[in-house]
Design a protein around this nucleic acid. Structure first.
Length: 484
DNA sequence: CGGCGCGTGTATATACACGCGCCGGTGCCATATT
């Protein structure tokens, strides 16, 4: 059943003729003031799910977003679409801009904001007085994936929602198991029975799955692969240094157009690398997990993991950047015995141990100087939320066990001899429907060969080129007149 | 775990072996200056 009115608005506001799967259900839920948890695969137009009902309902749409670049990106897109009543409130705005946005909040339709900034008292007071049409948590898996680890402000969104008088809420994500979905709902204080879940498969059939077990020759395997694979690709590392080094090797020894991308890059270097990658000026990105959210490149043909990610959710997110145009692509996980220990070390360092937690509970006021340490931040979150010490310890230890299990699942994935796709989907309680051709390295041992030849056209040659400086200006300078 | 850098010890003075310790990923915000 297709609602003609909705389609007319879709055409008028967004210039699309038809809805993609899931969009209409999400929009209807919002229009009926029903809370929803929307899980749609990457590239299926999640922003329309809240933007369209935003236009139809009275009041402000507040979107909690994890990254500054995502906010600026969305604002830019809406403005390009002719929307003027949109703003992002964050540390990139000058004091004058912040003031202006704050004063004209009642005239806005869409407000993008970080979980850190929305908590500010003066802002909350103001938001409380306004009619909130929709409260959106974008990339909601961050609540579970980041909130508990290094961004505790994500854990306060439930309280924020309550303070705003429980506005209609939409949580959006691309990858979440049932338990993560429950965690999101609980964290946001969403009612289990009344929240509508709009869940679509996480399976991306265009992406073929390969695991290559190496034996002391991972670097050689990597260079062999990138020399033969056609089109644009991303190589994920769990070390910034190694990402830099391999990018350098690929450039100087192999003449490939490769750049590295990680958190040490300045903001303008990040924008530059991203844009050159989208333009096909750069063919390969050697990245850490910093790279990816908001990357809209349609023709990424392969994603290689030099290091195993921490869990299947992250693996799916990272390989999900491949093949957004629907043409075939390949995800290759390179594994060497012992690789899991790097992840284990990283995980050990993420959460406070018993003695640190104890120290934080006893000396909370005295350690403000150390607030930069995420472990201390997590501990302080529990203290400030007045959660008893034993409960906090129990929760943290549970979290550690969960992470171990997730890593174990990745290891089992590596050594699984049956269908890799089936095994990965099983983690999300899904079965393989309509198994694609060349499904995975278990189903087709010489899978990667298909991606060495150029007979299949896999690149978009007519990608519009945009000077990165122009792009940078667009992204990070909100024009002044737009608020009037 | 594995790889690297560094200091120490050896056998006989500069080169090399050995063991020890360390490292390894995600982002908001603030707030002060120039």
């Amino acid at each position: 059943m297709v609602d003609k009115t909705l389609e007319q608005i879709l055409l008028k506001k967004f210039n699309y003729r038809t809805f993609r799967p899931g969009q209409e259900e999400a929009i209807l839920a919002a229009l009926q003031s029903q809370d929803s948890l929307v899980m749609l695969p990457t590239g299926s137009g999640k922003s329309i799910c809240y933007q369209l009902p935003g236009y139809m309902k009275e009041g402000l749409v507040v979107i909690v977003s994890p990254l500054l670049s995502l906010m600026q990106d969305q604002v830019e897109k809406l403005k390009a679409n002719g929307e003027r009543q949109v703003a992002a409130l964050n540390s990139l705005s000058s004091r004058a801009e912040k003031n202006r946005i704050f004063k004209q909040l009642h005239l806005l339709k869409f407000l993008y904001i970080s979980p850190e900034m929305i908590q500010f008292d003066f802002l909350m007071q103001r938001l409380k007085q306004l009619k909130i049409a929709l409260f959106v948590v974008d990339e909601a898996h961050c609540i579970s994936q980041w909130g508990m680890d290094f961004r505790p402000d994500y854990l306060k969104m439930g309280e924020i929602r309550r303070k705003l008088n429980n506005p209609t809420t939409m949580a959006l994500t691309a990858t979440a198991t049932e338990s993560v979905r429950n965690e999101i709902k609980e964290s946001l204080h969403m009612n289990h029975e009344e929240t509508q879940e709009i869940i679509h498969s996480v399976d991306r059939k265009a992406i073929k799955l390969k695991v290559a077990i190496c034996d002391g020759n991972k670097k050689e395997r990597l260079t062999e692969l990138v020399n033969q694979l056609k089109g644009a690709g991303v190589i994920y590392f769990s070390s910034k240094k190694l990402a830099d080094e391999i990018a350098e090797t690929l450039r100087t020894d192999h003449g490939l157009k490769a750049e590295s991308y990680h958190s040490d890059l300045t903001v303008d270097d990040k924008v530059k690398v991203q844009q050159q990658f989208i333009d096909n000026t750069i063919q390969l990105i050697c990245a850490t997990s910093a790279f990816g959210m908001g990357i809209d490149k349609p023709d990424i043909r392969f994603v290689i993991h030099y290091h195993m990610p921490a869990n299947p959710e992250m693996y799916l997110q990272e390989i999900g950047r491949c093949s957004r145009d629907g043409k075939e692509g390949i995800a290759i996980l390179l594994f060497e015995a012992g690789d899991q220990y790097l992840q284990m070390r990283l995980q050990e360092n993420a959460l406070p141990d018993e003695s640190l937690l104890n120290y934080i509970y006893k000396n909370n006021l005295k350690i403000k100087a150390e607030q930069a340490d995420p472990k201390v931040q997590i501990g302080q979150f529990y203290v400030n939320a007045e959660i008893p010490y034993n409960v906090a310890l129990y929760q943290i230890q549970n979290r550690e066990k969960l992470k171990q299990n997730q890593l174990d699942y990745m290891l089992k994935y590596v050594y699984h001899t049956g269908c890799k796709r089936a095994f990965l989907l099983h983690y999300f309680d899904e079965a393989v429907m309509n198994k694609p051709a060349n499904c995975c390295s278990s189903c087709d041992p010489s899978l990667e060969q298909h991606f060495f030849s150029e007979d299949i056209e896999r690149t978009n040659k007519n990608t519009e080129k945009l000077d990165w400086k122009t792009r940078f200006k667009q992204l990070y300078k909100i024009d002044e007149e737009s608020m009037n």
